[in-house]
Simulated scan of single mutants.
Amino acid sequence: MAHISIPDTTIVMDDSLPPDKRKQIDFFICDVFDTFKDDSASMEHPVFSLSTKPDHRMLVYQYNGNSIKIKPSYTGLATIHDKDILLYLTSCLMSAKNNGEQISSRVRFTAYEYLVSTNKPINGKSYLQLKEGLERLSGTRIETDIKTSGKEIQSEFGLIDSWHIIKEGKDGRMVAVEVKLSEWFYNSILGNAVLSIDKDYFSLRKPTERRLYELARKHCGNQVAWKISIDKLKNKIGSNSPLTKLKFNIKKIAETNHLPEYNISLEDDVVFFSRKELPKESNVPEQLPKHISKAEIEKHARPGESYEQVAERLKKIRAKL
């Protein structure tokens, strides 16, 4: 079901300061949106734990000149399921940004809308998992030199800087959540370093399946196919399981063919990913709208827009002018 993001801005005064020292803080209000987005950096690199149990390992990765050191807190590393929170916030922010709205790294959202959007049951366990996910996202520390939005930030930070839950009623029902994204992660949004992902991603329950889809979307993208050796794929996934188990899982996925958008197969220790359908963006219309050139369309295209959508948007802008 398609939705449209309706951002808003709330002004909150810091009452703990004297009147002349109080600062206004802008909050971006998450609502609903039309397309799910994922940031390219964490799709490429194994930032999130695939363990379903508390993971207290310190992870160190070196790949293509980039280094990542991921340090857990006492609650463990942030997991691939915790990442759903960031996917939801990224999707809301990108939808508003693409619509020309003002956004902020400080975001408010309702727990209910988050659970519904990410295909989770509405019950006490899901609300508890949301809180635990926020704890792990804030507690997990990352030291990296990965570039986002053309900027190289070499420092240690959390995936989110802070979080705050607002509750009301004797039952402690969660009303709203406030999150401050880290500068590193927010730069991905400002620099459009994101990719659209299929909503059925949230139906994938196994961590390895989610990671395989992310890698297929990042590397195969709109190409017809992408292949990689099983050894390199294991490193990209960030799996701590034996190689034989990964091979078994890939063969099972190939049999069921349930990954969104992509087929997967394994042959002679080489894993092949291919698109199930050609992307709509590849269907360039034979006749573009009058006075709208192909070069203009490619210059002004927003992430996820088809040629037809860009051309129609530009026509409307010209009509208004």
Rank of each mutant, 00 (worst) to 15 (best):
F48V: 04
I165N: 00
D268K: 15
T118G: 07
G139E: 00
R141V: 02
D200E: 13
D8H: 08
K218P: 00
S138C: 13
I122H: 07
R275M: 10
G124K: 09
G124L: 09
I250P: 00
N283T: 09
F272W: 12
S306W: 05
Q309I: 04
K131E: 15
D198W: 02
K294M: 14
M174C: 11
Q287F: 07
K120F: 02
D31K: 14
K320G: 00
I166H: 11
S241E: 15
K71D: 06
S67Y: 10
D55N: 10
Q309F: 01
H45V: 09
A216F: 07
R57A: 10
K53H: 07
C92W: 00
R173H: 11
D34C: 08
L159A: 01
T90C: 12
I142M: 06
H258I: 12
S229G: 10
N64H: 11
M94Q: 14
A2N: 13
Y307R: 01
S91Q: 03
H219Q: 07
S138H: 14
M94W: 00
A176L: 12
K316S: 10
E261I: 10
T52E: 15
D268W: 05
K151Y: 09
E44Q: 12
L87C: 07
P242Y: 04
K234F: 01
D20C: 09
T140H: 03
E296L: 15
V284A: 08
I68M: 11
F202V: 07
S182N: 07
L233G: 00
F272K: 15
D55L: 02
K167R: 15
P46C: 04
L134I: 05
S42I: 09
D268R: 15
L288W: 06
K147H: 08
H291M: 08
T244Y: 08
D8V: 04
H219S: 06
Y74S: 14
L50K: 05
P7I: 01
L86N: 06
P207C: 06
D200G: 03
G221M: 09
H81R: 12
K120N: 12
